[in-house]
Design a binder for these strands. Structure first.
Length: 265
DNA sequence: AACGAGTCCTGATCGC
DNA sequence: TGCGATCAGGACTCGT
């Protein structure tokens, strides 16, 4: 999404702004946005973990977290509104950037990045799994110093940023590691396999433009295709693609978790 | 430190 | 056809 947004938005300026729902904002600026945002040129679109950051010429940022069902859309101003559209901003080329979210777990914020960080609106996040900082040494350090389950540790955005329920189950399957395993008990080989699997799963899912298991759509409302490549997520009770045995479905760290008890140890 | 439960929401699906 | 229970890509808070 960020790559698509970057290609569409960088260099454009915001024109008018409409806040249809103010309570999804983490900063008390919703009513001031119509005076703050118009005229601002977009200079960059970045991502930190699951947070999307649209950087403006003034140094302020429009921050977006999609939650479960949040969606950013770039469309013509005349395009019909999605049922749960909460924010729309026109661009200087006549198009609009819109945010819609059925469940309203998504959050928007506006402000200078240090201010967003100080307020905890943009929380402290861990390693970016597709950067050099996600070294085997760094990953080993994280795993060796905690007794939590692998699932819980990978869900924790303060350790590694950006992994969610789908890709954690997928990475564990690819690595042959049970999500219920305790981090500090993983072997060196398992840690290496897990780190490689996390990266491989993310790279593939991004290449496939995301997993449209249900609501996910890109900024043009198109579906991704990675849902067709998922090995375990959503397949509880169905045969493992590797060994043919029925996949187990349980709850780990409060989240539905699917794994193969034969292929994952 | 770690974990479970509860909370925030709407909508799809399923059993009766 | 209707109705209630259950569940869903996330992430807080609170109590143990």
């Amino acid at each position: 999404m960020v790559r698509d947004l970057r290609a569409e938005l960088v260099g454009r300026s915001f024109a008018s702004v409409t806040v249809l729902r103010a309570d999804i904002w983490r900063t008390p600026l919703a009513e001031m946005l119509p005076s703050l945002l118009p005229g601002e040129r977009i200079v960059a679109v970045e991502r930190r973990g699951k947070y999307i950051l649209v950087e403006l010429q003034s140094g302020d940022h429009l921050m977006v977290h999609l939650g479960m069902t949040g969606h950013l859309l770039v469309c013509e101003a005349a395009a019909p509104l999605a049922r749960h559209t909460h924010f729309r901003a026109t661009l200087d080329d006549g198009r609009e950037l819109r945010f819609d979210d059925v469940r309203r777990f998504g959050r928007l914020a506006y402000g200078a990045r240090p201010a967003l960080e100080d307020a905890g609106v943009l929380p402290a996040l861990g390693l970016e799994p597709l950067t050099a900082g996600f070294s085997q040494e760094a990953f080993d350090g994280l795993m060796r110093r905690t007794t939590r389950t692998v699932k819980a540790a990978l869900l924790d955005q303060a350790g590694i940023a950006g992994l969610g329920n789908i890709y954690i189950d997928e990475a564990c399957f690819l690595a042959g590691v049970r999500p219920t395993r305790r981090c500090h008990r993983l072997t060196r080989a398992q840690r290496a396999a897990l780190r490689a699997a996390i990266q491989a799963v993310l790279v593939k899912a991004i290449a496939n433009r995301g997993s449209s298991v249900d609501d996910y759509r890109d900024i043009w409302n198109a579906r991704g295709s990675h849902q067709d490549a998922l090995q375990v997520y959503g397949r509880g009770g169905e045969p493992c693609f590797r060994c043919g045995r029925a996949l187990k479905r349980t709850v780990v760290a409060g989240r539905t978790t699917v794994f193969c008890s034969h292929c994952q140890r």
